[in-house]
Amino acid sequence: MKKFFAQAYLWLLLLLLYSPILIIAIFSFTEAKVLGNWTGFSLDLYRNLFEGGVSNAMLRSVENTLTIGILAAILSTILGSIAAIGIHNLKGRTRQAVTFVNDIPMLNPDIITGISLFLLFVGLGVTQGYTTVLLAHVTFCTPYVVLSVMPKLQQMNPNIYEAALDLGATPSQALWKVIVPQIKPGMISGFILAFTLSIDDFAVTLFTKGNQGLETLSTFIYADARKGGLTPELRPLMTVVFLVVLILLAVINIRTMKSNKNKK
C-alpha cells in the first residue's frame, strides 16, 4: 500500500514534469495554427519542416545551431583534452588555481557569462556574430570536457606512458598510441556533452550574437514567442530537438553506468 502511494507520487510528479513537452509533441501532429486546437491527425507540420515549407530564417537558425554545436564540440574537445593532460601533470597551487578558473564558467549563471563576454567583445571593439558566439560556446563547454577527461587520466597507469618511451616511442607516438586510446571514452562523453550544452544554450548566445541578424534556434524561438504566438512548425521542431537531446543524454548516461560497472 505504501509502495503504491510512493509510486503514484513519483509518477504524478513525472507527469507534471513532462506534460508541457507532451502537449507540444501531441499538437505537433495536427495542423491548427493555434496550439490546443485539434483539427485532426496530420503530418503536414513535419512535412513542412523537412521539405522546406518553412521560412528561410527558421531553417538558417537550425543550420547555425547545428554547425555552431559541432564546431564548439570539436574545438572544446581538442582544447579540453590537451588541457586535461596538462592539468593532470600540474601540482600544488598552480593546479588549484587552474581548476578554480575552470570551475568559473560552470558556476556562473548564464546571464553573467553572457554579459561578461559581451562587455569583453564591445570593450575590444570586436564585431559580434558567428565567431563570437562560437568562442563563447567553447568557453562554457570546455570545462565540462576537462571534467570528463580528467577521471580517465587518473585511472590510467602512469607507467605505461613511460614504458612506451622506454621502448623507443617518440613522445608524440606515445601520446597517440597510449594516452589518447585511454582517455578516448572521456573525450567522446565530453564531445557529446559539449554538443548538447551548445545546442541548448540561449542566454549566452543572446548576448554574443550581435546585431548582424545571426539567430540560433533558441534565439529564433525567443524572438518568435515575443512576437506573440509560435509558428506552428516550431512544434514538430521542438519535439525533434527534445528527442535528440533525450537520446544523446541517454547515451552518455548508459556509457557512464557501463564504465562504472567495469570499474567494479
Binding site: A83, I85, L90, V98, I115, S116, G123, V138, L165
Partner: peptide, 30 residues
C-alpha cells in the same frame, strides 16, 4: 618529462585568461 607535459595546459590557461577572467574584469571596469 612531467614538467614538460604540464605545459600542455598553457593554451587553455591563456584561453581562460582571455575568455573567463578578462570578461569578469570587464564587468568590474564597466
Amino acid at each position: 618529462k612531467t614538467f614538460k607535459r604540464s605545459y600542455w595546459s598553457l593554451p587553455y590557461v591563456i584561453f581562460m585568461a582571455v575568455f573567463v577572467v578578462l570578461p569578469l574584469v570587464m564587468v568590474l571596469l564597466y
